[in-house]
């Protein structure tokens, strides 16, 4: 699943960052995460979510902008009960790049 969650960004001049989240896999998790971004007015360029091997956990990839709110965004994510950890990657991470083929 990949989608545009919010309006195109005014801060398009910022570098992009990829966040990798390990989360519990149950029906409410995406709702908690998308809701957090929406209500805190954080922008998300892309989301990708798939279960990992054991089925109890999922991995979520978020493509976000590295504006001055990124730290706050990560802290809010880390507070979510179902988010087990958050790792931050630079824009060079290829997860979204390799998906781009499906969008042309």
């Amino acid at each position: 699943m990949i989608e545009q969650v919010s309006d195109p960004l005014p801060q398009a001049g910022y570098a992009k960052v990829v966040l990798e989240l390990d989360v519990n896999n149950h029906p409410g998790v995406m709702s908690h995460i998308c809701n957090l971004f929406a209500r805190r007015a954080f922008n998300v360029e892309g989301i990708l979510c798939m279960p990992v091997s054991d089925g109890k956990h999922s991995r979520i990839w978020l493509l976000v902008f590295d504006d001055r709110r990124l730290e706050q965004m990560i802290r809010q994510l880390e507070k979510l009960e179902d988010v087990l950890n958050v790792r931050r990657h630079g824009a060079e991470h290829e997860v979204f790049e390799r998906l781009e083929g499906f969008f042309h």
């Binding site: 409410g28 709702s31 957090l36 209500r39 979510l80 009960e81």
Partner: peptide, 14 residues
Amino acid sequence: IYGITVPITKHNFL
């Protein structure tokens, strides 16, 4: 109510 209370709870369960 699960969906409704996502933004106003620390956590919620169905």
